[in-house]
Design a protein around this nucleic acid. Structure first.
Length: 472
RNA sequence: CGUGGGGUAGAGCAGCCUGGUAGCUCGUUUGGCUCAUAACCAAAAGGUCGUUGGUUCAAAUCCAACCCCCACAACCA
């Protein structure tokens, strides 16, 4: 029995939950349920990133206290996760006083690798950010969004000396001690690592008010990195507690857009703290809508709540875990969603449960005892490599195989001909196959797996309500 | 010359590393079955594997050049 720690990226609270967040949670949830099935103890973190100017401004716009704003939004994420039927064990908010306190302690521990430097650059007061020299030139010195000339500004920032750890990080990636998935992202990260400058980790107070104060320097506030990334270990109790029972993380799930921070800045922090690097960083793709990135201006945003309310959690999990590729971008359209629901969930699986249960019921068949079976190697190999959508495909082949087998066995003919021994034999093997498939299905569709197990234990009766009623 | 990924039947993808008669799912057409949610099973049709050139007895697969699409490019999952 092993102790397994799984993390998800903490969403920035300036918006509401959307389809993309669901990916993180689902992948982690499948991983978690699978690990539990193997008999391991799982700790599963989720949380929210609640500091920074954008949140501060958003609250101001809405004319409510910032704390109230983040409280309300954090609750929305908690509700969302619940609705997804995702089983996290720990929830961390970066505005928790415990977290803030720990982050300051962590900052002090990092001190040997932090230095103060002056930064000068072109700044747009509209965007509230510095632009690169290149961007400055491209826009001829005028911000295209605000039609205002950039100003030359200078400020002091603290920096984390990434260069102290580049070699170690490179070695960890190449040796796969910190495995980056999908593997083709490795190249990208190694390149970025090479070029990565030291990272700025604070802002002057006047510029950033909503954040964790830098210890020993009243004039500076922590910028996102240390504060947000540290959540993965503060939630375990670091630095007061020895976290070596669950750390290093078995897997950290992130979107491909933030992989770079998790593969460069985060390992640098960990190394500076004397902690081990995570075993695996799993980066997933983005959800597209009609082939395009979801965006409010295009108006193609898929509201996950709408999907959940329309077809329920299991159908949502089914689509996102099987038809959204684990590693690359995938398209969501209502048409694809409905098709997969009707043709696969309802026809393949739902109907299978119905027909087999009816066959058992009509012939008074009951399964005596279910032998413990090992998980198929093909399945565990895919699951261990985090190839979840492919593992799901494998399970589905089993489901379809049972439909085929029923057609070949023709239990209804055996019943008519009175071949009862043979009939019991084929029903028994078919039911066992289905229960086996349900077991493999349980990390993906826990509720459905449970319902199948119930239908076929003890006296078998066809469910009064089909598992997945058709929508058309 | 920013970095990375991709271009294979109507759609979505596998195959490419380790060359040797082009495969899966969905859709379409036809047939079968009747236990089942008009569900299930079988068969068929459908592709000059982005372009051009090279290596080879043989290339989707290796090499070169080019074209096109997408993502990322320090804070919009």
């Amino acid at each position: 029995m092993e102790k397994i720690y799984i993390t998800t990226a903490i969403p920035y609270l300036n918006g509401l939950p959307h389809a993309g967040h669901a990916m993180d949670y689902y992948l982690a949830d499948v991983c978690s349920r699978y690990q539990k099935m193997l008999g391991n103890i799982v700790r599963f973190q989720a949380g929210t990133d609640e500091h920074g100017n954008k949140i501060y401004q958003k609250a101001k716009e809405l004319n409510i206290p910032v704390k109230d704003y983040v409280d309300a939004n954090a609750q929305k994420f908690k509700d969302f996760i619940k609705k997804l039927d995702v089983e996290y064990t720990d929830f961390v908010r970066t505005t928790d006083t415990e977290h803030e306190k720990k982050v300051q302690e962590i900052w002090l521990k990092l001190k040997d690798h932090i230095y103060l430097a002056r930064y000068a650059g072109w700044y747009c007061t509209g965007c509230e950010r510095y632009v690169t020299e290149k961007e400055y030139k491209e826009n001829n010195g005028i911000c295209p969004d605000h039609q205002k000339p950039y100003e030359k500004l200078e400020e002091e920032n603290y920096y984390l000396r990434i260069s102290d750890f580049k070699e170690q990080i490179r070695e960890a990636i190449l040796s796969k001690r910190m495995l980056i998935l999908p593997e083709f992202r490795e190249k990208e990260i190694l390149k970025l690592l090479d070029e990565s400058p030291d990272v700025s980790i604070s802002r002057p107070k006047e510029q950033l008010t909503w954040g964790v104060p830098v210890p020993d320097d009243d004039s500076q506030v922590m910028y996102v990195w240390i504060d947000a990334l540290a959540n993965y270990i503060t939630v375990l109790g670091f630095p007061e507690k020895d976290i070596s029972d669950f750390w290093p993380a078995y897997a950290q799930f992130v979107g491909k857009d933030i992989l770079r921070f998790h593969a460069i800045i985060w390992p640098a922090m960990l190394l500076a703290l004397g902690l081990e690097l995570p075993r695996t960083l799993v980066s997933h793709g983005m959800i597209l809508s009609n082939g395009q990135k979801m965006s409010k201006s295009i108006g193609n945003v898929i509201d996950p709540i709408e999907v959940l309310d329309k077809h329920g959690t299991e159908a949502f999990r089914y689509f996102f875990l099987r038809h959204v590729d684990t590693f690359s971008d995938s398209d969501f359209t209502w048409e694809k969603f409905e098709d997969s629901y009707n043709n696969e969930l309802a026809n393949d699986l739902g109907n299978l449960v119905q027909r087999l249960a009816t066959l058992c019921f009509k012939n008074n068949f009951e399964l005596k005892d279910l032998p413990e079976s090992e998980l198929p190697k093909e399945y565990t190999e895919l699951m261990d490599k985090f190839e979840f959508s492919r593992a799901f495909d494998f399970v589905w082949e089993k489901v379809q195989g049972i439909n085929r087998k029923i057609d070949e066995d023709k239990p209804w003919s055996l019943a008519k001909e009175g071949k009862l021994t043979e009939l019991n034999q084929v029903l028994s093997s078919e039911v066992m196959d289905l229960l086996e498939a349900a077991k493999l299905l349980s990390p993906f569709l826990p509720e459905t797996a449970e319902r199948i197990a119930q239908v076929f234990s003890g006296k078998i009766e066809p469910p009064k309500e089909p598992l997945f009623p058709k929508t058309k």
